[in-house]
């Protein structure tokens, strides 16, 4: 038995080794280097303790960017999750919705660079509202597909049993279907959050490196620090952002299970 376990481990590593090496070389080891650099100055490489972190946290642009990014992500997540669920519930009662789904998914296939000129026409204001509209335009189909998969996974036996027990439509929805969709809600929130960070492509193309105050995002800040070679601040901000993301990912499911 033990021999078999050892053999399994060998195969596991054998299949994984090329991927693991690449991940180590291109992500994990350099990330260690970033952590190290976050304690050094960029020019002389002197150790400066937490100075970089202090500089980042007191930086006006960083504060604005964090505020905007959180503000936009929350708005985008709430809207896309809610609207997506409503749309999926309506659509789940229909048959043959492939064509409708393709209309909503198609924006996902349109390259950002190809619609940039159309963006200029629609979003001449380039504000928070138009950014939210662009997000909903691109990711509503994505969210609907995820919700539809969640709804399809609800066991019919469960809902029918509730109907037999005398629950009406609303009660079945509130007390049977919604609790079943909790797992989907979790993944949809996580994926919507990630997508809300990806919308930067559209913002950048439509409004450039220095957009209006209300849509200046963390991504703009990283980009501008990168261009001006302020790697010490960037390293500290990278560590802070990665830490915040990791914390949210670990904390969120713990909260969920309660």
């Amino acid at each position: 038995m033990r021999g078999r376990k050892r053999k399994e481990s060998r195969y596991f590593l054998g299949f994984l080794v090329s991927s693991l090496t690449g991940v180590a070389v291109f992500v994990l080891l350099p990330f260690g280097d970033v952590v190290r650099r976050s304690f050094l100055t960029v020019m002389s490489g002197e150790y400066v303790g937490l100075n970089n972190y202090r500089a980042v946290l007191h930086n006006q642009a960083f504060r604005l960017a964090v505020k905007n990014t959180i503000c936009f992500s929350v708005t985008a997540i709430v809207l896309v999750t809610g609207l997506g669920l409503a749309a999926a519930l309506l659509l789940s009662r229909l048959q043959r919705i492939r064509l409708i789904k393709s209309l909503y998914l198609f924006p996902l296939a349109i390259p950002a660079a190809a619609v940039v000129i159309v963006w200029h026409m629609f979003f001449y204001r380039r504000d928070f509202g138009s950014l939210t509209a662009a997000y909903l335009w691109k990711y509503s189909g994505y969210t609907i597909v995820l919700w539809l998969a969640g709804i399809a996974a609800i066991s019919r036996q469960l809902t029918e049993a509730a109907r037999v027990d005398g629950a009406d439509r609303l009660q079945v929805f509130l007390f049977v279907e919604l609790p079943c969709l909790r797992g989907s809600l979790y993944t949809i929130i996580i994926l919507s959050f990630l997508n809300s960070l990806k919308i930067y492509r559209e913002v950048y193309l439509a409004a450039g490196a220095y957009p209006g105050e209300d849509i200046y995002m963390l991504q703009h800040l990283f980009h501008n620090w990168y261009v001006s070679l302020e790697f010490d601040k960037m390293a500290a901000a990278t560590v802070l952002t990665a830490g915040a993301l990791l914390g949210a990912l670990l904390f969120f499911p713990a909260l969920w299970r309660k």
């Binding site: 399994e8 481990s9 596991f12 992500v27 350099p30 280097d33 990806k198 990283f222």
Partner: peptide
């Protein structure tokens, strides 16, 4: 392969998949 360390490595892969480009840009 259900071996020891699999769950941990998988969690690492999931976290890396979730990091946006700007966070990995410097590394």
């Amino acid at each position: 392969y259900r071996v020891r360390g699999r769950r941990f490595l998988f969690a690492v892969y999931v976290v890396l998949m979730l990091l946006p480009f700007q966070v990995t840009m410097l590394s």
